[in-house]
Amino acid sequence: MSNILEVNKVVKTYGDYTALNEVSLSVPKGSIYGLLGPNGAGKTSLIRIINQITLPDSGTILLDGEKLQPKHIQSIGYLPEERGLYKSMKVGEQCLYLAQMKGLSKAEAKKQLEYWFDKLDIKGWWNKKIEELSKGMAQKIQFVVTVLHQPKLLIFDEPFSGFDPVNANLIKDEILELREKGATIIFSTHRMESVEELCDHIALIHKSNKLIEGKLNDVKRAYRSNTFEVGILTSNVEGLMYDLTQKFKVSPASFKSLNEDLKLQIELGTANSNELLHVLTQRGQVTHFVEKIPSVNDIFIQTVTQ
C-alpha cells in the first residue's frame, strides 16, 4: 500500500516559538489516520501546512507522490475545528460558492449538492439562511461542503464536536463510506474512543515533535506490558496470592463479571502466559483471562506525561 501523504522533516516556527520540529509522517492510502496530541502540540499547524494555508519553514510534503502545489487544493477536503459559514447567505448559494472555489463547475457542484442534500435528508434547506439553522444543522452543511468535491484526502479536525449522538453516528457512517470509496481520512481529535473505533493508523504529536506513529495494532503491541487480567474462584486466597507474588507483580483489578471471583491484574514481566495459567489452574477455577491491551487513551496519557 503506497502513501497518499508524505510529510518529511517539516519545521515551522512562529517568531521564537517552534510549532513543528522536523515532523515526518506517512499516511497510507485508504487508511483512517488519527492525528493525536494535546492542545498546542502542533496538530493544527501541521494541518494548515498540508492545506497550504501556511508554508513550512523547511521540509517537504508529497501528496500522492507529487510535491504539494496549489492544484492539490482540489484533492483535499478540510473540515477545520473552528468552523462557520456566512450567516446571512443562503445555504444553496453558499455551498455553490464554496464548491466553485474548490474548482468545481457550477453544474457539477449542483449535481453533487443534490446528491448530498438527498443523502443527508436536508433538501428543504436550500433557500434557508445559515442564521436560521441550528448549530448541528450548520455542521451538516459544513460536512457536505468538505466532501463535495470528492477529494482524495479528507482532513477532519474534531469532526464530531457539536453533533448530537444520532448525527455523530450518521457522520461516522459517511466517513466510513467515503473510505470504502477510496478516500483517505486524517482525523484529528481528542476523543480517544472514536480513535479506537475508527482509526487504523495513528500518530502522536507532543510539544512540536512526533513521538509515535504506526498501525494502531503495532503501536498497541509496542506499548503492551505483558499484563493479564484474571478472574479466579478459589477457596485458598492466601495460598494463591503466595504462589503468584513469588513469580509475578500482582495488583487488584476491576472488571465486570457475573461470578463472585477474585479479580487480579498480573504483570508477567519476562514470563509467558502459560506459566501464569499453570499457577492459576492449580489453585482454582479460572473465570476470566484476558491480556490487558493498552487503550489509545493509556498510550496517549503515558506518552504525554512522560
Binding site: 494555508i53 487544493i73 478540510y78 477545520p80 473552528e82 462557520g84 459559514l85
Partner: peptide
Amino acid sequence: TNRIIEIIISS
C-alpha cells in the same frame, strides 16, 4: 468571527 475564514483560505 464566523470562523469561515479557515475554510475559505484552504481554497
